[in-house]
Amino acid sequence: MLAKRIIPCLDVKDGRTVKGVNFVDLRDAGDPVELAWNYSRQGADELVFLDITATVERRKTMVELVKSVARQINIPFTIGGGINEIADADALLNAGADKISINSAAVRNPALIDELAKTFGVQFVVIAVDTRSIGDKNIVHLNGGRLPTERETLEWIMEAESRGAGEILLTSMDHDGTKNGFDNGLLKIINDAVHIPVIASGGAGAVQHFVDVFEKTNVDAALAASVFHYGEILIPDLKEILKSNNIEVRI
């Protein structure tokens, strides 16, 4: 059976991880490649790097990072952050990235999804969506959840799928950082509505939250950052518990 995926997310700036990392035995906790290697050894199924470098050298530092990761890591990885055009994606593909994740650029210019899918194949194109509820609606937000758009989340995701998204990375900004669990209600609606894989993000605080998101929504993958970085949840333990709950995982 196809396994449910566990995905640690690393925030990177100027080639260094930025969120606190509390691993034992790391020579350099700020080195994304060493961190990635550790996660792959622990049994992470995939990695996401979110590059928040804001300088003009951004593309160059991203390409360097992707090359170092691809040289040393034997599992797939996605890179996101500031990808605005085909040339960005092309440079990252040639550096060894398996997928790219697009967020704001796709909302501002939806045709970019068609163009990326046509040029590189749908399997290369992950659409990241940050959602927050306003009243009784789920609204797509930009700039890390600070800037609301006019788009409703479900409607935007369906459009992204029809334009050629190969996967959806859905982050609930209402749940992100709370450690109270994933937004299972919205995730189920989205997962039932699309025929492409969905990655759940935002709210992971305990092992049970991962069990819940897979049992209640049937999403394909769950992503988290701090619970993994601070060693609050160890991936081998998490996978054993998922397995004991009859959730298919790769051990």
């Binding site: 196809l2 199924d45 995939e46 190969g166 025929h195």
Partner: peptide, 10 residues
């Protein structure tokens, strides 16, 4: 059974 078939399978 979503397509592409993406991920780790036996």
């Amino acid at each position: 059974y979503k397509v592409p078939h993406t991920g780790w399978n036996q």
